[in-house]
Amino acid sequence: MNFSETEDIELMHPGHVGCPGCGAVIAMRLALKAMGEKIVLVIPACCWAVVSGPHPQFALKVPLLHTAFETSGAAASGLRAALDMKGDTETTVVVWAGDGGTFDIGFQSLSGAVERNEDFIYVCYDNEAYMNTGVQRSSSTPYGGQTTTTPELQWKKTRKKNIVESLSGHRISYAATASIAFPEDLIQKFKKAMNLKGCTRFLHVFASCPTGWRIPSELSVKIARLAVQTNIFPLYEVEDGINYTINYTGNKTVKEYLKLQGRFKQLSEKDTYEIQKMVDEDFLFLSQKVKLRR
């Protein structure tokens, strides 16, 4: 693709250890292009804690502070405070965490940091399960998904937690969803987040996982695109927890998305119909919120 509208910089070395077709790697590469080198990353336990390289190797060209699984919000707060005390107001602190570290174990420290309106960007790259430990369900795993802890007929029968709405409830200054299949939109949102200094900003990036979703690696981007085109993962932004903007309205059926993935192969026609109803209901609800714009 052509990055003529953004600086064509490459802040990732080619020698990372991500799986072929990893959405989280595509997400990082695009995000770094948007954010540039004046950032310091905070990464908790997640795929990227491994992908970035074991000692003494390093796949990135920006500083990275590893932190414990549940601590990203707190670690980023401490790092920001220290940079401020050192007089470095130029560097942006950016958390880069998976869905487990964001929706589940790290939710408390994230919630605390957002309530304090800490000055950093929090990125959740969402592959909808604990992929680094071998595909166990998280609270981001969608209704209908199989994982190693929701196997076969015990597939997940509760909904995916809505993280953006949870944080909108905190009245976060800026929250947005983005997808690796919509790079221009993703880059624009990362740039917007970079320019909004002095507040917590949250970016929820849909990042497909060929290993965990049981899809061919070459379908990684296509399936991420279908998630948006079916309104399963709508692209939208929320300012101050109240001003909603939908960036894309999909018109495809959920079946087109589900049928390509091994993790949904057990679903019946009726199950698929139920999922369609949920997705339609969620999108309608979201559309209603757009009308509440101040």
Partner: peptide, 8 residues
């Protein structure tokens, strides 16, 4: 730019 406390 270094990676602090990475996998060992």
């Amino acid at each position: 730019p270094c990676s602090l406390y990475q996998m060992a």
